[in-house]
Structure formats: C-alpha cells, structure tokens
Design a binder for these strands. Structure first.
Lengths: 251, 251
DNA sequence: CTATATTGTAGCACTTTGCGACAATAATAA
DNA sequence: TTATTATTGTCGCAAAGTGCTACAATATAG
C-alpha cells in the first residue's frame, strides 16, 4: 500500500502524485474451492500489505487503480470496482512507512510525504489465482496469494479493508457479473456453483442453483464434457453478454 | 462544492485542509410525494452546486462530510452515506472556482489551491424538506430545495453526481433503512408507501406493499389515527429497531 | 341516515425457492 | 459384456413470495 513502483520515484516531496490520497486493491483469487487474497511483503520488514499506490497528477482515479495494481503485482486487464473510502484519523500511523523507507536506505525526513496522513480508496477484483501470476515489485520481497482464513496481521487498517471488501463482494455477487471474469471460457454448472459456495462461504442446493442460473438467461449450453469421472458427463456452458444490464438513471 | 465556510478561511495555500480532496453531499428531500435536492447558488455567479467542502487536517472523512454539510447549509444530525468517488480528469475545470473567487474579491492566483484538481467523495442522505430548513453560508446567495425533475445545470460534474446518488438511493432502499430517518415518529402505511413510490418513481400495489413491510418485522402497529378524511381511519405505525441488522464479516 | 372515500384483509393465480427423487450416463470393476 | 458407482439433468412437489382483485369495515360529509 501507499507506495509508488520504484525507488527512484520516491521523492520526499511526492511530486507528480496527488498528495494524501492513496489506493488499495483487494484482489480475491479463486480456484478449486479456495478463496485467497493477494498480499505484498515489504522488503526486510515483515510488513504485509495490500497492493496499492498513488494517483498521478494527470491520471483518472480508476485508471490509477489499474496501473497501481500492475505496478505492484504486474497483473493486467483486471476489472476493479470501488467499494469504500477509508478516511478515519485512527488509520494514520507513520511508523510502518518509516520502517519501509529506512529499510530502503532512504531518509524518512519528518516532512516526507509518505509519512503524512493518507485517505485511501478501496478497490476490489476477483480473479483466478492459477492464471493471475503476480510478480513482486522492487519494494517487495514477495507478492503471494494468502488463504483468506489465515491472513497474517496486515499493515495499518488493511485487515479492516479486506473485511469490508469481502462484505461487498458477497453482496454484489448476484447483481454484478463479477464471477464470470474468472471462470474459463467454458465451464460446468458445478464449477459455477462451487465458485458461489466458496465466495459465500456456505453450501447451496444444486437443483435450485441451476434453475436460478439458467433463469438469468446469460448462459449458453454447449456440448457435453466427456472427461474423467465415473459418472454422467455434464454440459458445458458459456457466458453470453446479451443485454446491457446497466440501467442508467432517469436524469 | 469545494469551498470552506467563510471567506477568512480561504487562504491561497489551503492550509489546514487535505489538498486535492473534496466532499460533495447529495441531500434528497422528501415531502408530500415530492423529491427534491438541496443546492447552493454561489453569490453573484449563477453557479449552482451541491453543498460540499473539504476535510480538515485532523478530521475523519465521514465526520468532515457531516461538518461540511452543516457549514454550508446549517443542517445538523443528518445520516450521510458514501456512495462513490469521482476522480476523472474530465471533471477538472478551474474556471468555476476562479469565477467564485473573483466575485468574492479574492485574487485567483494561478497556484491557488482551489484551482487545483480535486477528487471528490460523494455522500448522500434523505431528509424531510419541510423539517430540514437550510440556511445559506456566506459564500452563497441561497440554499434551496430544487425539484429533481427540473434541476438547473450544475457546476462541474455535479449533475452526474446527482444521477449516481439517485441510482444508489433506489438500489439501497430495501437493504438499508434510510426511509425511516425522515418519517415522523408515527406514520401510516400510506405515508410509507408514498415515500417509496416517490423515490422509486413508480406506483406500487397497496396490498403487496403492506404485506412486505409488515413481513420485515420492523413495524409496530399502534392505535388508529382519527383525523380528517371521510373514510376509515388508518393505523399508525412506529419503526422499531430490534435486531442489529449489520451482519459483520467472518474475519 | 346515506353516500363516499379509504383502509384492512382475505382470496386467488402465478412465480420463486427449498428440497427430495429418479432416471440417464460415463467411467470403472467384475 | 455386464454390473457398479458417482454425478448429472430434470421433474415434482410444498412452502414462501408477489401481483392483483374484491369486499367488508369505518370515519366523515352531507
């Protein structure tokens, strides 16, 4: 969180970036009934943090979120959604950043822009963690997927940010079509159901689930999938983008 | 939008406030099947804008929203909710602010903090416009309720902000309990239904609506209301806060 | 006392959802 | 080849929810 991509860019005055405003990305990763989260570990600090960064002077906020994620993790083409702005004073603690600067061999002068108070905009996304292979940036020892159930203590209020992101993800599952971003081009109904169950953290009834999904009219049934398993072959489905679901306001 | 409460506080360097970050409040006002929005008109400028302002250095973001609203309109004790952050470059236009500064007799030096790019956090609330009587601040000629259907062109991207707030309000009507903030202590089922219809902009079926509302288990039926009208007297209801509805995350 | 407008509620059709059952079938074992 | 096994597609309820109509109840106006 709260850092640009390379050491050269860390100027004490923070020129070129909007001051006091940061971005933090909660990247949920799913595969085989596992839900994980992408974390960075700052070099030689034992500090775990969400991938995040800052907005450049001439950059759109939402673009900055994408770029920032790419800078920190080298992940590309990920659909990010805003979910909350964290702006309480209680989240202000310059010590983690001071530690990071020191370990980078930089002088944490007292008016260093990174030691100021930051308000951060939370973004979230959902990807397949076997396909999204992160590469840590120069500031980090590693950039890895962590089990949601066994997250380490995170920097600042990042545990809170994760919790809020998870709430939002669950609430938005039905309304948005986020899940189809991370299934392969074709998938079985069981794949889809497992995904829902893992994210919601509860089992769903097979029959009802299938009815509901087919009822949405956004799935196209393909041929059967003959592959392994001593049982009937399931159909494959494809997600079809048919209608523009975003209903604009009357204004 | 984008201005502190009194002329004295407008320093060219913006000291005491977080730079580049603003708050804008979309205050929906309801009464008698009318839905309105609270707008300020800057002095001698014909510029209409949402009530907004800036975050003080030591202030929580959400607190700043409340204070800002109070500063600009003198409304108090209003429950505000974040709904989106507007951070595109396309919203950056220093001309309206330059005009406002000039009309205030202030020198809009080119590096004046108000002429910089701002990212703004949108908040919204729902109140009764016959009870929430706004008073314009020193910067504004007036602070009035405007019909949603006939909004004037607003400063910067404030029309877009209003549209997005309305979308959010409608989507959140059922999940949150915002509506009960603006009904009197006791109210009839018809009061409640009119409120829903006005906000959603469409008629609802009386019988179904009553069933649904009573089914929520958050209404307590009181005695009947004998008052005017050549017809059967309706029951009064009271909103009861029973269960803490906010279900926290598993983390 | 009658007329009128609105309210509370019952009823019915239709849809949605929870849940169990069963035949179909692909791989494996006999 | 044939039986076994696990999983899938689908049907069939029952329960719950929703759209809509109907009708009796009842304050007030005349």
């Amino acid at each position: 969180m709260d850092k640009p991509l390379s050491t050269e860019e860390i100027r004490p005055d923070g020129q070129g970036f909007l001051p006091g405003l940061a971005i933090d990305c909660v990247i949920f990763g799913f595969h085989d009934n596992q839900l994980k989260i992408l974390l960075l570990e700052y070099r030689h600090t034992d500090l775990f943090a969400l991938p995040g960064g800052f907005i450049r002077s001439g950059e759109n906020l939402n673009d900055a979120a994408k770029r920032t994620l790419n800078d920190r993790t080298s992940l590309r083409d990920i659909y990010l959604d805003q979910f909350y702005v964290f702006g309480d004073m209680s989240r202000y603690d310059p010590n983690p950043l001071r530690t990071i600067l020191l370990k980078r061999g930089l002088d944490p002068v007292n008016d260093h822009w990174l030691l100021q108070r930051f308000v951060t905009v939370g973004f979230y996304a959902l990807v397949d963690f076997t396909k999204a292979i992160p590469i840590p940036d120069l500031l980090s020892d590693n950039c890895q997927w962590h089990d949601l159930a066994t997250l380490p203590p995170l920097m600042l209020d990042h545990n809170l940010i994760v919790a809020k992101a998870l709430d939002t993800l669950r609430a938005d599952l039905d309304r948005k079509l986020i899940v189809f971003n991370l299934l392969p081009e074709t998938f079985t109904m069981n794949d889809l159901q497992s995904l829902y169950e893992t994210i919601l953290g509860q089992p769903l009834h097979r029959s009802s689930f299938q009815r509901k999904m087919l009822g949405l009219g956004i799935l196209e049934r393909l041929k059967k999938q003959y592959s392994g398993g001593a049982h009937k072959a399931p159909y494959l489905y494809r997600f079809v983008h048919n209608a523009p679901k975003t209903q604009d306001s009357l204004l």
